[in-house]
């Protein structure tokens, strides 16, 4: 039972909150290289990705997630070094590089959120019966997307393990957190991104408890 991510989309279709669970293990491959690097890398969409040279589980399209244990943040490392420059310098070798599926950037999330917003509407248009609801769940082999739309038009989207149970209760709980810690916070303006630490903390608490104890205890 795992919850991967939470997204909140306002009634206009913009993403106002996103949260990715840190406990989710994203498969990553680590390997130590010597100079020169056999892989062909390129910068794509502010990330350094493998464009040629699949080997040892490193796939084309994988991004560099870290070098020598230092995590990558886009095209630079957390300590400020440029990744491409670091890899081009012979003195830095042998070097340990961590590859994996790239994380979504905020921009990508915003784009996906507005796509989901349209897709949701699409669902109700396709329906042979009038007044059908929008998409509630979207299922794949590896995860399930649950969407709950409130009467005011705010969408709560939850990405979970396909076997996650009691999702409705979690979604309801999240709505309560939103109404308690976003709307009752005097500094939050309606329809704008939620940037309050207390909201983060409470949302994470709901997710963690749902993960650990099962829904009956939250």
């Amino acid at each position: 039972m795992t919850i991967f991510s939470v997204y909140i989309i306002n009634k206009a279709g913009s993403l106002i909150y996103d949260y990715d669970s840190p406990s989710v293990n994203r498969p990553a491959v680590e390997k130590t290289f010597s100079y020169p690097l056999e892989l062909v890398l390129k910068v794509f969409d502010e990330k350094v990705v493998v464009s040629f040279g699949e080997r040892d589980g490193i796939k084309v399209g994988h991004a560099i997630l870290g070098i020598n244990g230092v995590a990558a943040k886009g095209r630079i490392l957390e300590d400020g070094r440029d990744i491409m420059e670091t890899l081009a310098t012979e003195a830095n070798y042998p070097i340990n590089i961590k590859f994996g599926k790239p994380h979504l950037t905020t921009n990508e999330k915003i784009m996906l959120a507005s796509m989901l917003h349209s897709l949701f509407a699409f669902g109700s248009q396709l329906s042979p019966e009038p007044n059908s609801s929008g998409i509630h769940t979207l299922e794949t082999d590896t995860f399930k997307l649950h969407c709950h739309q409130t009467m005011t038009g705010v969408k709560f989207v939850l990405l979970t393990d396909p076997k996650q149970a009691h999702v409705d209760a979690i979604l309801k709980k999240l709505y309560e957190v939103y109404s308690d810690y976003a709307l009752k916070n005097p500094f939050y303006s309606l329809d704008m991104p939620v940037r309050a630490e207390l909201f983060d903390a409470n949302l994470q608490q709901v997710i963690e408890q749902a993960d650990k104890l099962g829904i009956s205890n939250i």
Binding site: D180, Y181, K184, N185, P186, F187, A196, E197, L198, A201
Partner: peptide, 11 residues
């Protein structure tokens, strides 16, 4: 309902 730390302190 506002914060559990330093955020919004000035307000």
């Amino acid at each position: 309902q506002m914060s559990t730390g330093k955020q919004y302190m000035e307000c």
